[in-house]
Simulated assay, not measured.
Amino acid sequence: MPAAQVPIHIIKGRGAATRLAHRFSKDERNAFDDGWGTLEDGAADAAELLPLATEVRFEDVKSVLSSNDSPDIPFDRSLNPYRGCEHGCIYCFARPTHSYLNLSPGLDFETKLIAKRNLVEVLRAELGRKSYRPSNLAIGTATDCYQPIERELRLTRGVIELLSEVRHPFALITKSSAVERDLDLIAPMAADRLAAVYVTVTTLDGELARKLEPRAAAPHRRLRTIRTLAEAGVPVGVSVAPQIPFITEDMEQVLEAAWEAGARSAFYTVVRLPWEVAPLFKEWLELHYPQRADRVMARIHEMRGGKDYDADFATRMKGAGLWADLIHQRFHKATSRLGFNRERIALDTGAFRPPGARGQGSLF
């Protein structure tokens, strides 16, 4: 799939290397040498450009709760305050959602962000419906709810404030240390079995993390966040996802460090390359690991029935075949040895009070 090339100095600190044309694009443009110095002139002009800045757009949404009945997902209700993610993780399965906005799943996904500014008001209305029944709510499952723009916009904090008010259970997942800011809300809810946090630590290799997840917190900082959460009494788990053959090779070391920091549950997935993620990931491999790119993709194909990706519920999270079995065995043996997942994090759905309900007085 052709892509709009961007000079390398402009994309420093970004995961994608191009503004890859999305799958609904009618027009695609490529630079070419027409014999009149066009490419040289374009390169000279590009050298004067500044690095790509983050742009935030706002939208008013009609609904915020998403439901699913996928058998391979352990929650049926989720919420995401933002579209797009500045962390820029090259493997992010949510990148193709930017195509629906007529934006590139490449650089646009991590530089053109959409904030759902009326998120809290709409959530309050949805939780207040007579037909609503509480269930564990997963926050930040598609894009990180604590990406850098949350510092100023505070949408995630607004959601947690509302959930605290109505005593609604939730679990969130993040790669950011910014979750520590909201411990004043999360810790008391955790004490009442209403909150849990999962922190993704893909690798302990800082150099690799800067390439894979360029604007997420460094691995050592995420471990410190796990420790801070655990010491505050918050049930905390670690995600060692995604596992990428010949790229993320330190799963056992990550699990050991997370256990030492206080995580007591763990899970993993293998890398998923739906839609435009596949060509973006291949570009990333050629840019950062050209000598092993073919080897990496061969192992991914081995786990995906010879394809870049297979969306079958039975295999999409963990893959299939010999290599997938090896990853599973490594994870199972490491977590069993360390003691992970011996107790399930069970949140309480019985304490929920609909917005506006104030006991018996609300009946009159």
Rank of each mutant, 00 (worst) to 15 (best):
G206S: 12
D205R: 00
Y289R: 08
G306K: 14
E213N: 05
A196N: 10
A324L: 02
T202S: 12
H220W: 10
F281M: 11
R295L: 15
R295T: 14
D250E: 01
R295C: 11
F267H: 14
E260Q: 14
F281C: 11
V234H: 08
H220Q: 11
V199W: 12
M251T: 10
E207Y: 04
W284P: 03
R304H: 08
A266R: 04
E252V: 08
V254P: 04
P274R: 09
R272S: 15
T315N: 06
R227S: 11
L204C: 08
K307R: 15
G237K: 05
V236M: 08
A334G: 03
I244G: 03
I226N: 01
A196I: 03
I327P: 00
K211V: 05
E231M: 02
P290W: 14
T202Q: 11
L326Y: 06
E252W: 03
V238M: 08
A241G: 04
A230D: 01
H332S: 10
A195F: 08
V238S: 06
G233M: 12
G233W: 13
A232D: 01
A196L: 07
W259E: 03
G321P: 01
E213R: 09
L208W: 00
M251P: 07
T315L: 13
L229Q: 09
A266M: 06
E249D: 07
G262F: 13
T203C: 11
A230I: 07
P274M: 09
L208K: 03
D250I: 02
W275Y: 13
Q253F: 06
L273G: 11
K282I: 15
Y309A: 04
A218Y: 03
R224F: 05
L212S: 01
R295N: 12
A311H: 06
L322H: 05
L273W: 11
A334R: 05
Q243Y: 09
I327W: 01
R222C: 01
A217Q: 00
L204Y: 07
E286D: 14
Y309K: 04
L280I: 15
V254G: 03
Y289S: 04
Q243V: 13
V236D: 02
A261N: 03
E207S: 12
L280S: 07
K211N: 06
V201Q: 01
Y198M: 11
G319D: 06
F267P: 04
D250K: 02
A311K: 13
A195W: 02
E231P: 00
A298L: 13
A278H: 11
P290G: 14
E207K: 14
I244R: 08
V234I: 08
V270Y: 06
I327S: 00
R224Q: 13
T269H: 03
W323A: 06
R299K: 15
H301K: 15
W259G: 05
R299A: 15
W275E: 15
R222V: 02
P279L: 15
A314E: 14
G305V: 12
K333Y: 07
R215M: 09
A311P: 15
V199R: 13
V197C: 11
G262E: 10
